[in-house]
Design a protein around this nucleic acid. Sequence first.
DNA 1: CTCAACTGAGAAAACCTTTTCCCAAAGGGT
DNA 2: ACCCTTTGGGAAAAGGTTTTCTCAGTTGAG
Lengths: 352, 352
Amino acid sequence: MSSSVETPEEDVSVPGRITIRDVAKAAGVSIATASKALNDRGRMTPETRARIQTAARDLGFTPNAVARALVSQRSFTIGLLTNDTYGRFTLPVAAGLSAALIDRGVSVFLCAFQDDPEAARVNLRAMQDKCVDGLIIAGKRIDRGLPIELPRLSMPVVHVYSLCGDDDIGFMPDDRAGAALAVQHLIGLGRRRIAHVTGPLAFAAVAQRTEGWADALKAHGLAPFGAPLNGTWSEGFGYSVGQAWAALPPSERPDGVFCGNDQIARGVIDALTLAGLNVPRDISVVGFDNWSVFAEATRPPLTTIDMNLQEMGRQAGLVLLDMVEGLPVERGLRRLPCRLVTRQSCGVPPPA
Amino acid sequence: MSSSVETPEEDVSVPGRITIRDVAKAAGVSIATASKALNDRGRMTPETRARIQTAARDLGFTPNAVARALVSQRSFTIGLLTNDTYGRFTLPVAAGLSAALIDRGVSVFLCAFQDDPEAARVNLRAMQDKCVDGLIIAGKRIDRGLPIELPRLSMPVVHVYSLCGDDDIGFMPDDRAGAALAVQHLIGLGRRRIAHVTGPLAFAAVAQRTEGWADALKAHGLAPFGAPLNGTWSEGFGYSVGQAWAALPPSERPDGVFCGNDQIARGVIDALTLAGLNVPRDISVVGFDNWSVFAEATRPPLTTIDMNLQEMGRQAGLVLLDMVEGLPVERGLRRLPCRLVTRQSCGVPPPA
DNA sequence: CTCAACTGAGAAAACCTTTTCCCAAAGGGT
DNA sequence: ACCCTTTGGGAAAAGGTTTTCTCAGTTGAG
């Protein structure tokens, strides 16, 4: 035993972190055996294993994730890269993701950046340097990618609510079916003159939701009430549409509206209400997003479509994990179903 | 040269990551020298240093952050632990934090959990295992801590928008001064009968904002217009207050209102507007939070107080970094000034 | 010319864990 | 009794970087 290195008998002085060395010494075994015992690997008598595990527990040993990452080439960390600084889409996704992965010992690195490509590059680089095992790319619209090139990115990637090529793996809400759900609800309540007020044509989501609106009407033999009205995704736009309707004679107004998002829906309702009309008596309104801070605060509270973003995050996390572990994963886009959340902006829900 | 280990002359086969070994070999120096050259440490001829740096650039070398963390005992990662899953407070803070730290090579681990202490424990443990250099504890109210014990936490901690003991280091907005700013603005516009509608008494922020309201009135020799009205932090509460006011004769109504948050302000404005009153002509309204999705969508757009949460995140990050680097840091709470954002809910701003 | 001081650069330990051998002892069959 | 197999456990390398020594060579002064 050389005196320079091997005199750790009495090193009570340094209260630093407890390592597997300490566990091994306490249990009277070698480091290798300790490692195997703690990871349920290798062969040894049950007694030895138990002794080591007890020692680890008594000492409060937790393996150093950094050292483990260095040797295993896995950091048990995944990155979530997004340009949705507002968090409207990303936060629910992140919540589902974290919840799904934390049990498996995987943490999530969230990087939100403004749409500056340079910031994107820096953050992506940081993640690569830190050896994240995989990447979730999350956006705020389904027809745009992030301003980064992932050319020869050596790690698996899953796209969520963001553009996704045919060879990629991605998750999106089934906007079309979700929209149809909303319109079916209106029809089920007896509405027949169903309009559609939504966002800019440039958004793919707009086209898909409009298709869903048309689908549901057609399935029930109804004609669209006018052409879809496209504007901005804002309360202001909904408000102006509501004002215009309020100025018309009742026979020229819709009796049901499917709005492309909750903000537009709220604008419509506010304008109608201010003009003396009653929602839902005169017109039923359905939104899209189920952004609770809007949907619940609207008077009356908004019936709307929920995209199940949290579930989307959960599934994306599980698929990414499979990829990290080398399991085969089918490429392509997965569309997750949406869900109708009934509040009071449409009237009484139909009897079950 | 033993043949088993040292035959990396022709290892073009494995396209794996470029390490400092490769750089050293390319530059014809030892690993140690390469490391020193790349970190601007040690002594060597400028030519050697330049040669190594050029080689590193040509090869596209980036140091492996995991290996570096293992040896330096610093991960260049800080954790942001929060129970604000909605992100109203945490996202701006995180944005400021990230922006401030990314230049210094430090990334941010965001962990948001519901108020379940078990989840908190698991996430905290994960951060410890991953050797984050420091922790930001962010909450959603200033008078509550997170449901975790940080007893002998071996890393530095900074609290942001969350309870902070005398020996801790924390950041909060100066609610009192911010509230006074709002009321001064109303007074400057000629308002004299200034009411206050705000959240539940149980929140410390409510008391502080109420004090600011009283401060500013007193400084101008004005009496409070009635007692502060306490309710929930919701549009619904503001709406009911607005309805009540609208039913009163003008002489018994306030001519200016300072609201405890933007949602209450919006509720007040909506109710007044629906009752046929005009904001700001009949009553000026100021909010608090500058939650843009509310403030901008209100009709008229809301003049409100911004807590500068992003700046708070920035400063918290810089202080935490100082602590990580062992610099002396003054303990205690720092209150950051708020800022008035003028929109159209108060009328014309006073001439400068 | 000698010695000290300095200079540039490399060898090796250290960070902590996992994993691949390898070895000694014990057990079993003939 | 001998050999082979199994068993339990350990030694050592590997992962990529930083850092501390150490050392050979060079320079300058006396």
